[in-house]
Design a binder for these strands. Sequence first.
DNA 1: TTTGTGCAGTCTGTAGACAGTATTCTTTAT
DNA 2: ATAAAGAATACTGTCTACAGACTGCACAAA
Lengths: 206, 206
Amino acid sequence: MSGELGPGDKLNEPPLVERLGISRPPLREALRVLESEGLLEQTPRRGYRVVNMTDKDVEEVYSLRRALEAFAVDLLLAQDKPPSFDALNPIMASMRAAAKRGDSAGVVQATVQFHTGIVAAAGHSRLTDVYRSLMLQMQLSMAANVRSEARTKGDLSKGCDRHAALLECLRTGDASSIRHEFAEHGERDYLDRKPALDVETEAVSR
Amino acid sequence: MSGELGPGDKLNEPPLVERLGISRPPLREALRVLESEGLLEQTPRRGYRVVNMTDKDVEEVYSLRRALEAFAVDLLLAQDKPPSFDALNPIMASMRAAAKRGDSAGVVQATVQFHTGIVAAAGHSRLTDVYRSLMLQMQLSMAANVRSEARTKGDLSKGCDRHAALLECLRTGDASSIRHEFAEHGERDYLDRKPALDVETEAVSR
DNA sequence: TTTGTGCAGTCTGTAGACAGTATTCTTTAT
DNA sequence: ATAAAGAATACTGTCTACAGACTGCACAAA
């Protein structure tokens, strides 16, 4: 997520064991969890690598995200008393702070928390789990892009405004405008993203 | 899936190691995979248990399934040339054969394959993975029910007819009727299921 | 100079063993 | 007789060690 590793980089166990100060069995179980999250891929007898997402992969992540968010919105609208989303206020604050610092990674982090918080409010644990895993993959693809070029502060604060508008719509809007706003937002995020340029598999294990 | 283990049953590692003829590390990794699939749950220092699905869990599985199927149908309808679904023919045949034998577990197995095949035809790998995991959970909850009472052959063959109708609609129907048929089918499956009766945690490890 | 083969180094997959902790049974006290 | 406390047992979490396989390099031959 920090961009320290790039797509396709190998994760060899001995260096990681050395660095983390644990032994191989718990490390291996952790790697398998990351694989099930879709962040690493494993080939037998050749270890783990950071996934190298193709354009199709990115399109899959964003399209599934839109579908899941639409479902979450349906659940939220069906609730008797709509949640207040107060828990999102500090996340919005940290997003704005990161944008002011020009901290792209911080904005991405807060964005993931923001959207995950909304979906979690739907009260559907399986949906939340799937969505969280999907957002991690999205965060990974964004981290790969942050490596190549950083966004301007203007872009970052514009993203904050869009999220603020989405939250405002959720709190005060009617059903159809909420649905429309989410569809718009998901589409916009997909178009705004930088296309996944095929990064060379450069660094090896560290 | 066979019903040999019931909800809440403990899975202790030593007996499994003995039975499978492997050592603990690979067993532990396998258990962690089953946990990530939502079939087992793990509590620290207390090992793994078969998940005991509450009514809310079952409702979550079926509602998420409906949402994912709706998304899959959208993808299928957006394809230039619709797939033939020829791969589903042998699955339908084995479902009918199982129904004729009164083999509930076989029908469930074929049903899972049938639906997974349709979703997989949408060509969305992440959707397919999530859906497959979800169907395994559904299969598990059904296996728990098969323990208590078996369905009659009439019920089983009726289920086959419903699936045949769904497939026919997919092949020849228009967009709106396909969407309607899927929504109907998912709702019907949810209503037809037996409510998850709270089975006592009876057997221990074996 | 280039290509193929062999060897060495390294990593993964697995096995076996040990320490810490939860559970259960037994014993004792009320 | 029941409940609580302690001890014994068994299981989980972790570590070290070993075998098999792949990768990379070097050397030799064409």
